[in-house]
Design a protein around this nucleic acid. Structure first.
Lengths: 189, 189
DNA sequence: GGCCGGGTTGTCAAATTTGAGTACTCGTGT
DNA sequence: ACACGAGTACTCAAATTTGACAACCCGGCC
């Protein structure tokens, strides 16, 4: 589906013509880190490819003092079409994306209980911090915040809550994790 | 951090020496689709790189009839060390990975309400299906299921529940999504 | 008056993933 | 008999991402 393309085309469609760095900053300021981890190389790569495909086009290039010149791109009609397609594809992508922590957990049978508990507690702390950050955001809207923005924040909030709940279960059961196989007392058939 | 490496090294550490295709199948059978979407090209690429780095080594090559020969790899001590490192890194990675649906939602202001509602309802249906699948799995353990496996399934269950809850909110508010900016009646300061 | 950290813009090679393909086998229908 | 879909086992070019870097500005600090 390609999130990066959707992200770039979407940004240009919503905010009008922009140059590369501006797209990143914009993303960082607003909602950003909830959506996309677009690193510079990846972003400029996408811009070049999108231009080559005619989905965006350079409208002018500017320069501030002696800083590197920057190219301002605008989305084309073709690009708007592609944007709609990508959006539909994104809606169709439903599965949970795999979380590496599951992997890590599966490989932790020979890890001693205290270290493992330590890892999980660290994670819990970070999640808690994220949660309070998000609660904060719910209270104070930023300029031009739309209902969609609200809902995106709410999405993140619910996801973090779920993670917190799971981490609590994890801390409960961390003792049973070492090399013991799952005996489910009443559910064997 | 590289989930693929963690996945391959972990598989070889847990199940003993295996060949490429076996690793995939194994993953598909067990818990799999919760963890990793390892496509063939990606998997074999990782195997070659891991071998070049001495983290795994070929122990023999077999052949069934006229089928392509297969190379069985085992993890090395070096590989086990790397596995521990990757595991620690995976535990340290806490943030929510971005979900493309957020992107899609942010670009949906000019989408008519009914279409949008349709997309969300479709998603909800699929999530519901996943949820019942996971509930099912909670009841019936597969052979050799460990406590960790249980917890991984539980993780998925909680995540899907959170998604369902969010989708319900979404359906509630889908009417307000078109071009209306967020008026938060009491929270402007 | 030099250095350091941080921001502005972007490039580039190397690492990695994707998606399609190759070349066999086996079962099943027709 | 023979096409057809599905599985086995892996390869490879092309797309994409990563991470490090270039080259410039600005403010503070000592």
């Amino acid at each position: 589906m390609n999130p990066t393309r959707l992200f770039v085309l979407g940004a240009l469609a919503r905010r009008g013509p922009m140059y590369g760095h501006q797209i990143r900053r914009d993303a960082r300021l607003d909602r950003a880190e909830l959506w996309s981890e677009v690193r510079p190389g990846s972003l400029y790569g996408a811009l070049h490819r999108l231009e080559a495909e005619g989905l965006i086009e350079p409208v002018r290039t500017e320069q501030q003092g002696q800083l590197p010149a920057r190219t301002v791109y605008a989305i084309t009609d073709e690009g708007r079409r592609e944007l709609r397609t990508l959006r539909t594809e994104a809606f169709a992508e439903v599965g949970l994306r795999p979380d590496p922590v599951d992997l890590a957990l599966a490989m932790s049978d020979e890890l001693d209980e205290d270290t493992l508990r330590g890892f999980i507690e660290d994670r819990r702390r970070l999640l808690e911090a994220q949660a309070t950050g998000l609660d904060h955001r719910r209270e104070r809207a930023w300029p031009d915040q739309t209902v969609a923005d609200d809902l995106i924040v709410e999405h993140a909030r619910l996801r973090v809550q779920a993670e917190l709940a799971w981490h609590d279960q994890l801390l409960d059961q961390v003792g049973k994790l070492q090399t013991v196989s799952a005996h489910r007392p009443g559910g064997d058939q």
